[in-house]
């Protein structure tokens, strides 16, 4: 475990905690894309299939449980909670996310480290995570006044992947044979997708103005 990876995991944790607290405390999910949340729940479900069969460390197991629980709780809140569900911006969250799932599944079948069920699911989850933020970014472009917590959620979610890229660079130079093309390429694509969001987020933060994403 290196500092970049730990910082990345903590940043990822902060992003889901920020979102969960926002939804739980103000009972609102305005500006949050349910599709992105569903995609993330699917990412964790597909990636952590080895949760009970392959023990890496206590930290690893605990974090997997936290990410699984938080992502499914958020989806539950947005679908089932009588107050929160009414604040869901249904008419703007229209990204057809099943168009994302199928290509990622096909890619997982074609490009994986080993053609076993778990490995195909793992590769699928890596590709899916790379594009899972798209519905949320599209929704932000359509949302007039983006509330800070949602913007912070997206920012931390992007920041964690940037830190992971540093982690991969570090591990590449410190561990022999540490080569994971699938994670690396998908991780870089994922980070690039946040590119313009980061630009406008930092710009709004610097000029101390409300975050606006050009449509």
């Amino acid at each position: 475990m290196n500092l970049f990876r730990l910082a990345g995991d903590m940043t990822h944790l902060v992003s889901v905690v920020v979102l969960l607290l926002k939804i739980h405390t103000i009972k609102s999910c305005a500006g949050v894309s349910l599709k992105t949340q569903e995609l993330y729940a699917l990412v964790f479900a597909a990636r952590y299939l080895d949760l009970f069969v392959h023990f890496v460390s206590l930290y690893n197991t605990v974090m997997k449980l936290v990410f699984l629980a938080s992502s499914f709780t958020i989806v539950w809140y947005m679908r089932r909670h009588k107050i929160v569900r009414r604040t869901y911006d249904k008419e703007h969250d229209t990204f057809r996310h099943h168009f994302i799932v199928l290509p990622c599944l096909v890619l997982g079948l074609l490009l994986n480290e080993k053609f076993t069920f778990r490995e195909v699911m793992w590769a699928f989850s890596i590709y899916l995570e790379a594009v899972a933020i798209l519905p949320q970014l599209v929704l932000l472009q359509r949302t007039r006044n983006i509330d800070n917590l949602t913007a912070q959620y997206v920012f931390f979610l992007g920041a964690y992947r940037v830190l992971y890229i540093f982690n991969w660079i570090y591990r590449y130079f410190t561990e022999p044979h540490f080569v994971h093309w699938i994670s690396w390429i998908a991780g870089i694509v994922q980070t690039l997708l946040y590119g313009d969001f980061f630009y406008y987020y930092i710009l709004s933060w610097k000029n101390n103005v409300k975050l606006e994403l050009p449509a």
Binding site: H12, H54, K64, K114, W122
Partner: peptide, 10 residues
Amino acid sequence: KSETVEHDEL
């Protein structure tokens, strides 16, 4: 190559 690939990252 071991049966399962070692994924030690989240």
